[in-house]
Simulated assay, not measured.
Amino acid sequence: MVIEYIRYRIAEPERRVAFEGAYARAAGELDSAPECLAYELSHGVEEPERYILRIERTSLEGHEQGFRGGPWFPPFLASVRPFIGDIEEMKHYERTDVVSGGRGAAVRAETLAEAVGGGGIEGLRRLSNSFYDRVLSDPLLAPVFADFSRTHIEHVAVWLEEVFGGATR
């Protein structure tokens, strides 16, 4: 993953309103593009003419070849084109291991097992139990699991933990 930062300076207050509206319209293209994982537009407090757009991308190549070569780029560009001249910097960065875990910060899971299971096998057991409770109560799926053994739930939870980068058992 790479993070793209674009710094804008927009002096005129009426253009700032138009700028924010343009990105609100362009957000649909960012949401649709598989190369875009997340984004946020921040507005300067001390210097209201400053904006920073932060976009999490799958990769540099995903951005430069995938997004820019894909169907979402032309309408995205059409929305934001009037503000290209206001860009002061456009660069890509990689995250480091220095990450906040404090109040208000998004907690970054190290593995998919931690993200899905809440940090251990117990969360994955709850996930497996919930899944199979629904399967066994579904009129269409229940017959497929007629010979189902409840011990299978534990096997699925352990398998999920291993596949998602957790402990191997």
Rank of each mutant, 00 (worst) to 15 (best):
I10P: 05
V158P: 04
A22I: 06
G85Q: 04
G70D: 00
P34M: 10
E40R: 14
A142V: 06
A146L: 03
F145H: 05
E14T: 14
L136Q: 03
R126V: 14
G117E: 01
L160E: 03
P71T: 15
T151E: 15
G85K: 03
F67G: 06
H155V: 08
Y132D: 00
F73K: 05
A115R: 11
R25S: 14
F19G: 02
T96V: 02
G44C: 05
T96S: 14
I10T: 06
D147W: 01
R68S: 08
A78Y: 03
E122T: 12
V2S: 05
E162C: 06
L112Q: 10
E49I: 04
E64V: 14
T168I: 08
E88Y: 06
L141D: 01
N129C: 07
V80N: 04
F67R: 06
L140I: 11
D138M: 03
I84P: 02
E154L: 06
D86K: 05
V2I: 15
E64Q: 10
Y8T: 03
H63D: 14
E12C: 08
A22Q: 03
A27Q: 13
I3H: 09
R81M: 08
Y5P: 05
R68L: 15
H63P: 14
T168A: 12
A38I: 14
S100M: 09
R7F: 11
I3Q: 13
G118H: 00
D31A: 10
S79L: 07
V163I: 12
E12S: 15
I84F: 10
R15H: 07
D133C: 04
T151V: 11
E12W: 08
E162M: 14
I121R: 15
A38T: 09
G120S: 02
L141C: 02
A106V: 13
E46S: 10
E14W: 05
Y23I: 14
D97V: 06
R16A: 12
P34A: 13
F164T: 04
W159P: 06
D31K: 13
R54S: 09
Y23R: 09
L41I: 09
H63Y: 15
V80T: 13
E4R: 13
W159A: 15
F67C: 11
G166I: 02
E56Q: 10
P13R: 02
V158L: 09
V99N: 06
E162A: 12
F73M: 06
L30G: 04
G117K: 01
R7T: 12
A146C: 03
E46W: 07
A22M: 05
A22R: 04
G44T: 06
V156C: 00
K91N: 07
R7A: 09
Y39S: 03
P13V: 04
A105H: 09
E29N: 15
V116M: 09
G118Y: 00
P74M: 01
G104N: 02
V98C: 09
Y51V: 05
P139A: 01
G44Y: 02
G166M: 01
T168F: 07
V99T: 10
A146H: 03
P34Y: 10
G166R: 02
R50K: 10
G119E: 01
G101V: 12
I3N: 14
R16H: 07
L127G: 02
V2P: 01
D31I: 10
Y93D: 04
F73I: 06
S42Q: 11
I55Q: 09
